[in-house]
């Protein structure tokens, strides 16, 4: 399986989906013009990954800001991961937020209450 590597931009996050290491990273801002189009390759990748996932998948989400339409796409990413976890593979989700960013912490907690995988909330010092 090929990896996904997308550089970050002021409107879109940096994305790293690495099959060999089972590492999934989304970092930065997510306010793309068309969220569905932007996240589609990631959803497709996960769809394929579900068939032969690594024993352990590590997910690093470090978002500074995301808009409403991205929030649904990010939920779709988590839904796919939830499916893999249901098949008995280990999924570790690390949700990073800046020290005083209560909104981002809350957003992580919101996802955690929808997805049946525990999140590790990690505070980044400014």
């Amino acid at each position: 399986m090929e990896s996904i590597k997308i550089d970050g931009s002021p409107k879109t996050p940096e994305v790293n989906f690495d099959y060999q290491t089972g590492l999934i990273e989304i970092k930065g801002r997510s306010i793309p013009e068309n969220s569905i189009e932007f996240y589609k390759p990631m959803i497709d990748w996960l769809e394929e990954y579900t068939n032969s996932p690594q024993d352990k998948t590590t997910v690093q989400i470090q978002l500074e800001y995301f808009n409403t339409s991205s929030s649904k796409c990010i939920l779709d990413v988590f839904k796919k991961l939830e499916g893999i976890s249901k098949n008995g593979k280990e999924i570790e989700i690390n949700w990073y937020y800046e020290e005083d960013d209560e909104d981002m912490l809350e957003a992580g907690e919101d996802y955690q209450s929808i997805i049946r995988i525990p999140f590790k909330m990690i505070e980044i010092e400014e």
């Binding site: 306010i31 800001y65 808009n67 409403t68 005083d100 960013d101 209560e102 909104d103």
Partner: peptide, 16 residues
């Protein structure tokens, strides 16, 4: 900073 992010977020959402 929290308010700064909030203001930006509300503006971005309205423009969206």
């Amino acid at each position: 900073s929290q308010l700064r992010r909030g203001l930006y977020m509300i503006s971005a959402e309205c423009f969206d």
